[in-house]
Design a protein around this nucleic acid. Sequence first.
RNA 1: CGCGGGGUAGAGCAGUUGGCAGCUCGGGAGGCCCAUAACCUCCAGGUCGUCGGUUCGAGUCCGACCCCCGCAA
Length: 309
Amino acid sequence: MKTSNETQNILLIGTSDFAVPIFESIANDQRFYIVGVITQPDKPAGRKKELKESPVKEWSKTKSILPLQPESLKDGSIDEQVKKMNADVALVVAYGKLIPDDLLNMPKFGTANVHPSLLPEYRGPAPIQYAILKGNHKTGTSVMLIDEQMDHGPLLTQMEYKLSGNETYQELSDTLSRLSANIVPEALSLYINGTLKPVEQNHNKATFTKMITSNDGSLFWEKDAVSLGRRIRALNPEPGTYCMIDGKRLKIKHARNIGRDGKPGEYFEHEGSLAVQCGGDALVLDEVQPEGKKWITGEQYLNGYGLPK
RNA sequence: CGCGGGGUAGAGCAGUUGGCAGCUCGGGAGGCCCAUAACCUCCAGGUCGUCGGUUCGAGUCCGACCCCCGCAA
């Protein structure tokens, strides 16, 4: 077994923004040497379908690393290349594709994963959003070893984070990413030198999340303003929340809860801004975006469009 | 050639069959009031995205281009 002052060869596997600060902290840590990066292929994105590189790919280029971008890991197309990397450990963060067992087991010490929840709570694809949606007072991030089941492997370490009740998905994601970046190198290092023993999760307490889609962004004003407010924050900025006015979509970026009774779905003016009555309390819509338009304030909306019927 | 909306005053919008360019905010001046972010009066401010075409006349019709955005991926 290697000692802690030896440099470990590490393979980084990830795609989204969430992974970048974590990978950066690995890159800046003398205990690790990055032998390779795997990220998703460039994909057509946006209206013009221009190929877009993943945030991890952009990051890796700043480190002069050319990432592998296989369409699939299951066909074994990159197995040989990965084997040659001679990785001691692999770290998966927000990769977005299934990684087959033989690849997971290729590194001597296996493959670790960062999951932004207090596992076994919120396994699955949307842990950050769920923490906000459910109105939790705390969440956190977990570092674990990947096993054969989704977010099921033994834990290396966790860190709690207290929620203010005002954070958006984007903000919480950034925060948990930075928190993770602080603890991942140490946890991996202690695990590799044998100081840190993986602890099995309490599987009886496991809860699961489902992928958030744009359909989840539809707001029903019959619901209470508190849960609607959570939804608006949990889906901000992606995929975003919206309601329909006059057959057109109105996206809602930011809303404020005010105490008020009335008929749900009724729009009214509140201190010059657009507001809507909900099932319990009401929401002031501070920042909205009419279909095909730019983001505007609720006040600008009223000036231009007037009060919806 | 994925579908679609839009570029008009500092901001957000309207502009009907082509015929003097408007609304709500904001800005300025004045007034009312014990006072006000409230109310009243008046004022300023627009090469109507760009280029070309049709026409006596184009924000409006035709063509090309630039930019912004929603959906879908």
